[in-house]
Amino acid sequence: MSWLTNVVLPKIRAVVSAKREVPDNLWTKCPACGQMLFHRELEANLNVCHACGHHMRIDAKKRMAVLFDKGEYARIELPKPVVDPLKFRDSKRYVDRLKEAQAQHGPNRDAILVAHGKIGGNDAVVAVFEFGFMAGSMGIAVGEAIVAAARLAVLQSAALVIVPSSGGARMQEGILSLMQMPRTTIAVEEVKEAGLPYFVLLTDPTTGGVTASFAMLGDIQISEPGAVIGFAGARVIEETIREKLPEGFQRAEYLLDHGMVDMVVRRHDLGETIGRLIGLLRKPVLEAPKKRA
């Protein structure tokens, strides 16, 4: 080994490889079956594996596009609550972690987006968790967004659809993240009291304090195939009971079998299913088509 091989060669390689730049995102390997999937086809199939039907996680904007009619929706601006109320610091400062996540997702962002539009021709307000933003954890900003979404649904007399995808409470906000459990419960209660339907679409993964509050209180509970949904994390359970967990434990199908969700629905059919159900709940008598004057 010499200076040539140690220093010069890697530098040359770095330059050369940077120039060639074969995009490594053309192909995605399905984490479930290992099949190599071409990115355009994968996207056209809504990030569901052609080979095995595995539903990959998608970001909040893509989720909105999947749910709303023709992918059309209007996002609302979310309240900007107090930042880092506990002045929390672990190995990093919480404000720095937030900044990092916002650098990736956009300024003023947190782990949720709220939009309104039509689903199956019905007015709907949709709140979608962004798992890529600090594991979709629920702190004050997320709680406030859910309150805002619920109030918008009441204001517009629209159905509310919440799509959680979350590791649970945001520890860095301590007790105030825990208090989002009652706060979000109150929010969805306001929608129910207004006689409006409240849907929960559980996506991978939904755990902890999110599951144990608004996410289990839907009039109708839908889940995507294979989504992990539970209260306690698998590792915590294994450590507590010192037992291996059964196959498929805490998966959407397991919850269906245990009576915890109404149905497990493929991503392609979500918009149609939710649209139909809102229609059944809100338009009990179909009007005969009117002729235009």
Partner: peptide
């Protein structure tokens, strides 16, 4: 607990 809906 999970099987019987702890979260719910």
């Amino acid at each position: 607990a999970e099987a019987r809906g702890q979260a719910e």
